[in-house]
Design a protein around this nucleic acid. Structure first.
Ligand SMILES: NC(=O)c1ccc[n+]([C@@H]2O[C@H](COP(=O)([O-])OP(=O)(O)OC[C@H]3O[C@@H](n4cnc5c(N)ncnc54)[C@H](O)[C@@H]3O)[C@@H](O)[C@H]2O)c1
Ligand SMILES: NC(=O)c1ccc[n+]([C@@H]2O[C@H](COP(=O)([O-])OP(=O)(O)OC[C@H]3O[C@@H](n4cnc5c(N)ncnc54)[C@H](O)[C@@H]3O)[C@@H](O)[C@H]2O)c1
Lengths: 215, 215
DNA sequence: TTAACATTGTTATTTTTTTAACAATATTTT
DNA sequence: AAAATATTGTTAAAAAAATAACAATGTTAA
């Protein structure tokens, strides 16, 4: 295993995006890609793409660009775990279901293997191949199945309580989609996403754009 | 109207988060808040909070901190449009519905006023107060209702086509949740979000965490 | 064969963002 | 009344990220 000097956080994020874009290209039977093509697909600059690729220690060829398969494989070596990691969805409502049906079958190294809910109509059913357990089973299943990552899509009021259970159950990474910010111990990796922040940012720049037009 | 020297993009993002957190505090009948409290809620440092607050030209009081209502009002002045902006959702599937039911009634300045779909079972119905039109009506409704922002939740294959229609219809900001990156002209503000990037980033850091433990 | 060209890889520079440092000061305690 | 304390506001420094510059080089064209 080659030693990889630690990569900038933003580069990690982009590696995931590169792979997504490269998989699309592969689907179109493309073999090679230039930095400016990849940049164009993802609204980045070619320099940034080349720099990221340099950081992960890959090299393209001068007149052909980068070999798509090779690059996908290398990105996998960097961001994936060899054994693969299991993921659970907590709260099988609209958002939880959307996430499962989106994710399903997309990645081999990450897989959603369990959902949890309190609603008896959802518990003990299988949704899109994913079994739904009662939330009381959380700790048991998380441990027995060895699931390190959870996507939280319960109502905001439940977020704190559920987070606590997740941490107690030994979860190491949480993706919090509830509107309620939560707290976790330092050894747990937390990411929060709120659509309203995205929208308000867009609204701000749309507003700015209008103003500029009027200057 | 005071002139606001242009704010860092990251600050804009955090302003939206501050408001969300402040609204939660207001709901608990809290009147004042310290920088370290706000920081704690959002996993930021107190310095960063104070710096942002300085940038928007607000001042707290020395032993009480910041007046929550005042701050919410000021953030509104900066990131909201006075008249309010209308938003449309394109694709009324799981994700589109999740977004509508989440958003509904949350904000006075942004409001989802229309959805579009091709599925005849969804068209001409009202979902959570939002009327769903056939996608053929896109341009007509966008223009007549004066909707500048769209949330795109159609299947990935449709993303390019739908984006083109949106741009032609005069949309100024797009939040793309499909897994397919799209292109827009320079005067249109585009933001893309993909849950897989978030998850893969979490997986990477969970993996790193494990490695560190083993050193 | 040579010149023009397009592209990569890498170092240097600039810009943006975060963090640190610390003076100022109102409040509480002694 | 003086000292201690906790907090803000702001400038300075550091760190992170993005961009620019440009040498190297294989490919194509003249
Ligand atoms: N971050 C975003 O962009 C975004 C977007 C949409 C919705 N949301 C949020 O995501 C969450 C889910 O949204 P939704 O539309 O799917 O809501 P929903 O009501 O359809 O689903 C919530 C599910 O959680 C279950 N649940 C409730 N308490 C639970 C508990 N203690 N343990 C396990 N399951 C429990 C419910 O039975 C339900 O099935 C909400 O908090 C919503 O505000 C966030
Ligand atoms: N970014 C993310 O994190 C994330 C998460 C989940 C899903 N997704 C993506 O979001 C999209 C929607 O997911 P979903 O689970 O709601 O899918 P879905 O199939 O439930 O919904 C898609 C809807 O779009 C409608 N539609 C299809 N073509 C259309 C067109 N040309 N114009 C208007 N409407 C059209 C369909 O009738 C359907 O109602 C998919 O592309 C999915 O991959 C993204």
């Amino acid at each position: 295993m080659t030693i990889m000097p630690k990569l900038p956080e933003k580069t990690i994020e982009r590696l995931s995006q590169y792979r997504r874009a490269l998989l699309i290209c592969l689907g179109k039977n493309k073999q090679y890609i230039f930095s400016h093509e990849l940049a164009g697909m993802l609204h980045l600059t070619p320099v940034q793409v080349r720099r990221d690729i340099m950081l992960i220690g890959y090299s393209g060829t001068l007149r052909q660009g980068y070999e798509i398969r090779e690059m996908i494989a290398l990105i996998g070596k960097i961001i994936d775990s060899e054994e693969g990691l299991k993921v659970a969805v907590i709260g099988l409502g609209n958002l939880g279901r959307a996430m499962i049906s989106y994710f399903n079958g997309k990645r081999t190294k990450l897989s959603i293997v369990a959902a949890f809910d309190i609603n008896q109509e959802k518990v003990n059913r299988v949704y899109a191949g994913v079994p739904c357990y009662h939330i009381d089973m959380l700790s048991k299943i998380i441990r027995s199945e060895n699931i390190p990552i959870a996507i939280m899509t319960v109502p905001g009021d439940e977020a704190a309580k559920v987070t606590e259970s997740l941490v107690l159950a030994g979860i190491k990474g949480i993706l919090n989609y509830t509107p309620t910010p939560v707290n976790v111990p330092a050894n747990t990796y937390l990411q929060e996403y709120d659509m309203i922040t995205s929208l308000e940012k867009i609204a701000y720049f749309v507003k700015q754009g209008n103003r500029e037009e009027h200057i």
